[in-house]
């Protein structure tokens, strides 16, 4: 997806390295390769932890946070749809929908 880049520095994705157990599930479920497992220097393969390697590639789908067993990953997921966003401005986030004909 390197051909398609969207706005920089907007993603709400956050990673707490202290809470990360290095299970790697976030790297499996991310459809954009935003996370990667990296050795943090603590002895052998055991010291692996997730790292955000492409923050601007994140589309905030929430798959990583939803599957993180220790809640080390946080992101505000949402619908990147114009109709939904306009409705959320008018009626608030709870009442907004992207319309009956949308996805």
């Amino acid at each position: 997806m390197q051909d398609f880049r969207y706005l920089s520095g907007v993603s709400t994705l956050k990673l707490d390295p202290d809470a990360c157990t290095g299970c790697g599930l976030c790297t499996v479920v991310c459809p954009h390769g935003v996370m990667a497992l990296e050795n943090n220097g603590e002895g052998g393969g055991k010291g692996k932890k997730a790292k955000i390697v492409d923050l601007d590639g994140c589309m905030e789908c929430g798959a990583c946070a939803n599957n993180c067993p220790t809640d080390a990953v946080q992101v505000t997921p949402g619908v990147g749809c114009a109709t939904y966003i306009i409705q959320s401005w008018i009626y608030g986030k709870e009442a907004a929908t992207c319309g009956v004909n949308c996805c």
């Binding site: 997806m1 398609f4 880049r5 969207y6 706005l7 907007v10 993603s11 709400t12 459809p31 954009h32 590639g57 994140c58 589309m59 905030e60 505000t76 997921p77 949402g78 619908v79 990147g80 749809c81 114009a82 109709t83 939904y84 966003i85 306009i86 992207c98 949308c102 996805c103």
Partner: peptide, 27 residues
Amino acid sequence: SYLAVNFTGSTPFTSPSGVEKEMRIAI
């Protein structure tokens, strides 16, 4: 311009935070 922004809802790479940011300026 409006319909192009509307297409972000169908793309698999645009973040809602980004779409909201550009809509605040574009609308």
